[in-house]
């Protein structure tokens, strides 16, 4: 991937050391069960953090809190300096548009739209005219090496290609934070490697990254920092040596 302005995050205070994610005493209670129990952590701009842990430890709940898709029962979530608890549903949606990009294990592309329009969608939602949005989407697909598949519908794309389209869509509005939920979980090893390379490249050009995964290999390849969760709490935080 080329280091171009197309994929560079442009969020206001993106300098190294600036805290992009800050959680303080976050607790999420579902009936009798605490999915998260007093989680506090911070992620600085340009960092690539992997969150790992066994099933049911609260990884997805943590991701939902950071993405503003769910609200904590207690504690605060601050993203790029904004306390998400102070925003209503519309405010959260508007904030996500500009500041957060998300990629998922199962891609979550719209089957009725071709790759190009799936990517352009996020820009069109913030009011960018269709022609301009499609131009930028094409540039992104080009950067990610799948411009030739711009007119293909999701059903006609391979798993790796679908995830690249999903990454392009997540990067469309140059978010401060890119969240990835098991990004290689549904891919074969070759496609998985391609996506990992892509995430590494993005991080190297300054994209802050939070990856939730079961995959130790993905964590050690892409992340510089590891947070391990157990029973809804941060069990361990450690620095990682990236493995090529």
């Amino acid at each position: 991937m080329r280091r171009s302005s197309t994929v560079m995050p442009v969020t206001s205070e993106n300098s190294a050391g600036h805290v992009v994610v800050r959680l303080k005493g976050v607790r999420k209670q579902y009936a009798e069960t605490a999915a998260l129990d007093g989680v506090s952590l911070s992620i600085s701009a340009g960092e690539a953090v992997a969150v790992m842990g066994p099933s049911g430890c609260g990884k997805s709940t943590l991701l939902n809190m950071i993405a503003g898709l769910d609200r904590p029962t207690e504690g605060t979530v601050e993203i790029d300096g904004q306390d998400l608890g102070s925003l209503n549903e519309t405010g959260l949606a508007l904030f996500r548009r500009r500041h957060i990009g998300m990629i998922f294990q199962f891609f979550n592309l719209i089957d009725d739209l071709p790759a190009l329009d799936n990517v352009a969608l996020s820009a069109q939602l913030i009011g960018i005219p269709a022609r301009q949005a499609r131009r930028r989407a094409l540039e992104l697909l080009d950067e990610l090496g799948i411009a030739g598949r711009k007119d293909a519908y999701p059903a006609a794309l391979s798993g790796g290609e679908r995830q690249r389209v999903a990454v392009a869509r997540a990067l469309m509005n140059r978010p401060a934070l890119l969240l990835a939920d098991e990004p290689t979980g549904a891919l074969d090893s070759r496609s998985g490697d391609q996506v990992m390379d892509l995430l590494i490249d993005l991080n190297q050009i300054g994209q802050t990254l939070l990856i939730v995964t079961h995959d130790q290999h993905l964590a050690t390849r892409c992340a510089s920092h590891l947070i391990e969760l157990a029973d809804g709490r941060v069990a361990r935080e450690s620095a990682l040596e990236r493995v090529e």
Binding site: A67, L69, E89, T90, A93, L94, R96, R97, R98, G101, M102, N108, L109, I110, L121, S122, L125, I126, R169, A170, N173
Partner: peptide
């Protein structure tokens, strides 16, 4: 998905 990418 649409809500996740910012649809209000």
């Amino acid at each position: 998905m649409l809500k996740s990418i910012g649809m209000t």
